[in-house]
């Protein structure tokens, strides 16, 4: 996979890499002893940072993009764009990709911030672009899903779907999987965009799918979390929570972990869909959890919580300002967290 992390210190897209596992390659996340640095990235950060080659990239909601030295927190370059940014950044090679509320997707040089290309849609782009086989995939609130050349931004194909697309896609070898505001999960042919199958849920989908062992794992605003057969879209199992699920899941080999707006973090067996544990977080959870060895971390509306992955027991929590989609980055023995109030922290 072109966009897979090249080194243990890299964390190139939402949930670490395109497999959306949530960074499970690292050793367990220990209690941080202190703050190495903190940086104010404007007034608000909604999305997750990414990391490559010792540069931490962060977007501020009001249109700023920062490249920070991961050791010191000092900005290496900054760009200001005219539209709001909800999209989580994605790194591929030396390029940095993200969408914005004005409908554009930007491709920048990671080392300088220089624009390489940009392409336009007719709606907000909130999801994180996904790169596979030299193609960038992203959806838009205009109801279309786009595939463009990574090098140039030229269109490869576009597929019209039945609703807004606000979450990111999962790009596998032959198919791209995504959830849509029309309530369906779609499997699109990766080379043509043709719809291979669609599977209905009871309401719109605002969650990014993961795929493990032929099972698509995705939450819906209908309060259910689904395990779908990746080949056919048939429902293998579904698990009910008390409110909508927009948190994207993180998966280990056996369990999938996700948050719900009902304020709980759930771990569900990937094979059976049975509950392993649930833990009350005290605030709605819309951000994706990340897994690190034997622990799972999630940035709730309030604190960052660290849970034991086997039991769900809270190991520790830290009040860092919360975040709606801002998953922590766990790399090189450090934890990088961006918070809704605009602060970026490096803990170690």
């Amino acid at each position: 996979m072109e966009n897979s992390a090249g080194a243990d210190r890299d964390w190139v897209t939402l949930l670490s890499e395109n497999s959306r596992t949530g960074g499970s390659r690292e050793a367990s996340w220990r209690v941080p002893k202190g703050v190495r640095w903190q940086f104010r990235a404007g007034r608000a950060v909604r999305s997750a940072p990414v990391l490559r080659d010792n540069l931490l990239y962060v977007t501020e909601v009001h249109g700023a993009v920062y490249a920070l030295d991961a050791d010191s927190g000092r900005p290496q370059w900054t760009r200001q764009f005219p539209n709001w940014i909800h999209s989580t950044l994605s790194l591929s090679g030396n390029t940095l990709l993200f969408g914005c509320d004005g409908g554009k997707v930007h491709c920048l040089a990671g080392d300088t911030g220089r624009t390489i290309w940009e392409t336009a849609t007719r709606g907000e782009v909130w999801g994180s672009p996904v790169v596979r086989d030299a193609t960038v995939f992203f959806g838009s609130a205009d109801g279309r899903f786009y595939a463009v050349e990574h090098k140039t931004g030229r269109p490869r194909w576009t597929q019209n779907l039945g609703g807004r697309i606000s979450a990111s896609a999962y790009a596998a070898e032959k198919h791209v999987y995504l959830g849509c505001g029309d309530g369906k999960v779609y499997a699109l042919d990766i080379s043509s965009g043709r719809i291979q199958w669609s599977a209905p849920t009871g309401d719109g989908i605002d969650s990014t799918p993961a795929v493990v062992a032929g099972t698509i794992l995705v939450g819906s605003e209908d309060y259910f979390f689904y395990g779908l057969d990746a080949g056919t879209g048939s429902v293998r199992w579904k698990f009910e929570t008390k409110l909508g699920i927009s948190s994207s899941p993180a998966a280990s080999e056996e369990a999938v972990v996700f948050g719900s707006k009902d304020q709980n973090v759930y771990a569900v067996d990937i094979r059976t869909g049975k509950l392993r544990w649930k833990t009350f977080a005290g605030s709605a959870i819309t951000s994706p959890p990340v897994i690190s060895g034997s622990v799972v971390a999630v940035n709730a509306e309030g604190p960052v919580l660290c849970l034991d992955i086997a039991s769900g027991q809270v190991l520790w929590k830290a009040g860092l300002g919360g975040g709606l989609q801002s998953a922590p980055v766990l790399a090189g023995g450090r934890i990088y967290v961006a918070s809704q109030n605009g602060m970026v922290y490096a803990l170690e």
């Binding site: 909800h86 609703g163 807004r164 606000s166 505001g181 719109g204 605002d206 605003e221």
Partner: peptide
């Protein structure tokens, strides 16, 4: 989740 739930 209006960003997903509103029509195009």
């Amino acid at each position: 989740s209006y960003q997903a739930l509103l029509p195009v």
